[in-house]
């Protein structure tokens, strides 16, 4: 259940970054290839934020699709999963996108 730590990380990072005021919303990016399950993060967020300035804040999760470049034919392909072969058959893809675990922005009062 590493999503619990992810939620905790969101609450800690936002609390540190926003010195005062109440946090109304947090927008985070979670890449498809991170192995982090967005629904589970959402599930934990309410609990992790309880008693903090993020309590009751809306959590907007941006799902970032995976994208990789084939090390053999150099074409770029969409990656639904970490193990996605290139259409040319090569298995080694350089991941260009989909590993994001970022806090994009917060809405505060």
């Amino acid at each position: 259940m590493h999503e619990l730590s992810i939620s905790q990380g969101i609450v800690e990072s936002v609390s540190d970054a926003v010195p005062d005021g109440r946090v109304l919303a947090v927008t985070v990016e979670i890449g498809r290839l991170t192995g982090v399950f967005a629904d589970a993060v959402r599930f934990c967020f309410d609990e992790c934020s309880r008693g903090t300035r993020l309590e009751g804040a809306r959590l907007d999760i941006v799902d970032v699709l995976g994208r990789g470049r084939c090390s053999s034919c150099q074409q770029e392909v969409d990656m639904e999963e970490l193990v996605t072969p290139c259409p040319c058959g090569n298995l080694l893809l350089e991941i260009l996108r989909g590993q994001e675990l970022r806090i994009r922005s917060v809405e505060v009062t």
Binding site: G9, S13, V18, R104, S105, E107
Partner: peptide
């Protein structure tokens, strides 16, 4: 008074 702050931080940055 609500305002949006761009954070662009790694969640696991700490």
């Amino acid at each position: 008074t609500a305002r949006t702050l761009e954070l662009e931080q790694e969640i696991l940055g700490k």
